[in-house]
């Protein structure tokens, strides 16, 4: 089974995000990382090919330094990397991103395409299904478990109140939720091996995607009013104060 994993390079997920003077998220500066939300899907892909053969290709669209994210995926065990990087894609919106990634997937059809349920920096959560529609593929989002069988895929999808089981054909695109798998750490051997793995760099033009104009623009950015500092309590006092608050709010 050949699997394509979409993996985004995001500004340091534990750092403080910043807006640049152009009101776009600052995506350069070197402390970015492979989106932790995409590692669950990558781990799932690696487990599937380890069990039944095939290759994992990682596809990412991002600035030059996003190559570090692809390299991490290769070090974890992916077989090939594709990085789409193009100054014209800076500020790309959800639709442009979906068109570019869909074109990259179409060049090398896979049996399964795996994305994250939502990115850590943008958390739009729609790019994968937009791609599925552009590619005419079946899709299942919010996947917490996936099994391969003779008829295709048996998938558990997270719902508000529990989970649904779905059947999906080959090929299918899925988005996986956090916690679906336990991502491995790249081994030293993996890191060394990654350097020799195939790595392709493409531009939007290489993929034949022409309309790159974003249809959204930031009009105004303001700071939310800071919240007034609360009261700090400890020990015995705390109990009485919380109980008073509950009483004031008439909930007890």
């Amino acid at each position: 089974m050949n699997i394509t994993v979409l993996a985004k390079y995001v500004p340091n997920p534990t750092g403080t995000p910043e807006l640049g003077p152009d009101n776009l998220l600052v995506r350069t500066g070197g402390d970015g990382a492979l989106d932790p939300g995409d590692e669950y899907g990558l781990e799932l892909a690696l487990q599937l090919v380890e069990a039944s053969g095939g290759e994992v290709t990682v596809v990412s669209m991002g600035p030059d330094e996003a190559i570090a994210g692809v390299q991490r995926a290769l070090a974890m065990g992916a077989h090939k990397g594709v990085l789409i990087t193009d100054p014209a894609l800076r500020g790309a919106d959800a639709l442009v991103t979906a068109r570019v990634l869909a074109a990259a997937i179409a060049r090398q059809p896979a049996d399964l395409v795996i994305a994250g349920a939502e990115s850590t920096d943008g958390y739009t959560g729609t790019v994968p299904v937009t791609m599925a529609e552009l590619l005419g593929m079946a899709s299942v989002t919010a996947v917490r478990r996936l099994e391969v069988d003779a008829d295709g895929f048996r998938i558990e999808r997270q719902t508000e109140s529990g989970y649904d089981v779905l059947r999906a054909p080959v090929p299918t695109l899925v988005t996986v939720t956090a916690g679906a798998t336990e991502p491995r750490y790249p081994s030293l051997k993996g890191i060394m091996a990654a350097k020799a793995k195939p790595m392709e760099r493409l531009t939007a033009a290489d993929l034949g995607v022409e309309d790159l104009d974003a249809s959204q623009s930031v009009a105004i950015v303001t700071d939310a009013p800071p919240k007034a500092g609360g009261e700090i309590v400890s020990g015995e006092d705390a109990i009485g104060r919380i109980a008073d608050l509950l009483a004031e709010a008439k909930v007890i």
Binding site: L95, A117, T126, V127, E133
Partner: peptide, 24 residues
């Protein structure tokens, strides 16, 4: 609404209409 189900509908619809989609 920002739910998994509605996101699936809006995301696929965007591919069909080519219109802008704002999340969150």
């Amino acid at each position: 609404a920002s739910t998994y189900d509605a996101r699936d509908v809006a995301g696929r619809l965007q591919a069909l209409t080519g219109s802008t989609l704002m999340a969150n």
